[in-house]
């Protein structure tokens, strides 16, 4: 069974998502609503199929692991996008659905419809523009860490059982000097994250399976992983 990225909607958003996910997924398919497909736009040679808003999902290939794949709902019509999200959620309980919204109202509706994550397009763009104006260097550094092939990386590192730090208090440790990595946050077992700078986390005793979000150069992060646990990106 192939782990696939299923993109519903044929537009520039879908093509951009497909372009970015091509290297990470065994299979990337765009599902176009209706039959209007502009083949000229598809410069990345992504597989394109058509679908409709009925609950008939037979056109999703049998060899696709539907429950563990990821679906993107990027229809430009908000009502259709919400309807699509509800349809997918009602048919595939465990499918990871990421939906695109153009405004706040649609974002909350998409979440109610069962999307695991909503990308608020307008807000995200505005946030980046405002950051560019107010904190240009922060924007540049984080943008490079997240989206560009910078030497600086961000990673999620899980604490393995038996490593030397398990059982120690966070405030006792300074990994920035020893490994050259800066810890941003701690992710608890219930997947709730907490910034390393909060009051109560200072006295947190490191436990096995704690996940740390760290920033550092690739080499330093690797060294850190070897000492403390495993990468869990």
């Amino acid at each position: 069974m192939k782990k696939a990225a299923l993109i519903f909607g044929y537009n520039d958003y879908a093509l951009e998502i497909a372009k970015n996910l091509k290297s990470g997924y065994e299979k990337v398919t765009i599902y176009a609503l209706g039959s209007e497909v502009d083949a000229l736009k598809n410069s990345h040679d992504v597989e394109i199929k058509s679908f409709d808003l009925s609950d008939n999902w037979s056109n999703i290939d049998e060899d696709t692991d539907r429950e563990n794949s990821i679906a993107f709902c990027v229809l430009e019509d908000s009502a259709e996008n919400i309807f699509l999200t509800i349809s997918l959620r009602s048919s595939f309980e465990n499918l990871n659905i990421i939906a695109l919204s153009n405004n706040k109202q649609t974002a909350s509706k998409l979440q109610m419809a069962g999307a695991n994550k909503v990308i608020p397009l307008v807000q995200t763009t505005a946030e980046m523009i405002a950051e560019m104006l107010q904190k240009p260097i922060v924007k540049e550094v984080f943008h490079n860490i997240l989206f560009q092939n910078s030497t600086l990386k961000i990673a999620q590192v899980k604490m393995n059982e038996g490593n030397i730090y398990v059982g120690k208090e966070i405030s006792e440790i300074d990994w920035s000097i020893k490994y050259g990595v800066v810890v941003l946050a701690l992710v608890h077992k219930d997947m709730s994250s907490e910034f390393i700078y909060s009051y109560k986390i200072k006295h947190h005793i490191i436990d096995k399976d704690d996940v740390f979000i760290v920033v550092g150069y690739a080499k330093d992060i690797k060294e850190f992983e070897e000492m403390t646990g495993s990468r869990c990106d």
């Binding site: 951009e16 998502i17 372009k19 990470g24 997240l146 941003l184 994250s193 910034f195 979000i213």
Partner: peptide
């Protein structure tokens, strides 16, 4: 283009992305 890059991060390092 931003949506494409966010999609990649959300599928690759979702927690790290949320933290940033």
């Amino acid at each position: 283009g931003l949506v494409g890059m966010i999609a990649k991060e959300l599928t690759g390092r979702p927690v790290a992305f949320e933290v940033i």
